[in-house]
Each structure stands twice: as C-alpha cells, then as structure tokens.
C-alpha cells in the first residue's frame, strides 16, 4: 500500500461525514431543485461522486497491479 493508496481510506471517511449530521443538515430543506427535493439531489450527488472516485481509484490500482505483474514476468 503506497502513500497515495491511503487516500482511498481518507475518501471513505470523508464520505461518511458527508452523509451524516451535521453536514446533512445543510441540505435537509423543504425545497425542490428542478422538481427533486434538495436532500435527494444531495444524497444521489454524493453517491455518484463516490462511484466516480472509486472507479478512478480502481483503474489506477488495476493498472498498477498489471505493471507489477508484467515487471515480474520480464
């Protein structure tokens, strides 16, 4: 696990805070955004960001694994 990889763990912790009180309070309003409640927009927005982050990290780690493997094959 390199230093960079630990960032993934940090993102997870940040995500936990984003999805909990008190940050949730900011978006917990009686308001519609383009016809959708702000809270729903926020939760799904974070969700999509998390998936994008995980995807990027997954790609990074897969290519790293492959580099390591090809290194040993040579």
């Amino acid at each position: 696990m390199t230093k960079k990889d630990k960032l993934l763990v940090l993102l997870g912790i940040v995500g936990f805070f984003l999805l909990n009180y008190p940050l949730l309070q900011i978006f917990n309003r009686d308001l519609l955004l383009l016809g959708v409640p702000t809270l729903t927009c926020y939760l799904f927005g974070i969700w999509i960001l998390a998936i994008a982050g995980l995807w990027a990290f997954g790609r990074h780690l897969i290519s790293k694994e492959q580099r390591v493997q090809s290194f040993y094959k040579e």
Binding site: L8, G12, G15, A50, L54
Partner: peptide
Amino acid sequence: FLTIYLGPTLMAFFWWF
C-alpha cells in the same frame, strides 16, 4: 432507506484493504 445502500458504498472505499 438510502442509508442501507450508502453504507456499502462507503465500505467500498475500504474493500481493497
């Protein structure tokens, strides 16, 4: 109800470890 599915998403950050 979304918490039940957001939890696994958060956990996915720790899966690799």
